[in-house]
Amino acid sequence: MALKVGDTHEAVVIENVNRTHVVKYAGASGDFNPLHHDDTVATGNAGYPSVFAHGMFSMGLTARMLTDWLGAASLKKYGVRFTRQVWPGDTLTSKAEVVSIADGLATIRVWTENQKGETVVEGEAVAPAS
């Protein structure tokens, strides 16, 4: 697919995040930080209202929107900042916009919003423009 500046794409990447989603990611990534799966730890000393998803889980979900759109190994560079935590019950929509193209590579702004329209992840990806 040939990308043009201004092209956009979006997809719902997960509906109603639950603890099973989080545990699956913990197992796949090997990151068993109890803040992500053990409510006793998350709400205890750490003081969170509940467990929350791994930042890298949101990063992986957001990337899925990009690879579904652009192809599995399309990304040359992919970076995100985690701006809000993702909580059980959240539904996430990932969005992308091509902001520039140079030397055959497209720079794409990416971000993911929760059901309240709050951004949970924002960043940038670089992929071949065609």
Binding site: G47, G55, K76, K77, Y78, G79, G123
Partner: peptide, 13 residues
């Protein structure tokens, strides 16, 4: 400092 957050990750391939 009590809390820790993953502030961001970038991967260059």
């Amino acid at each position: 400092l009590k809390r820790i957050l993953n502030g961001g990750t970038e991967i260059e391939y």
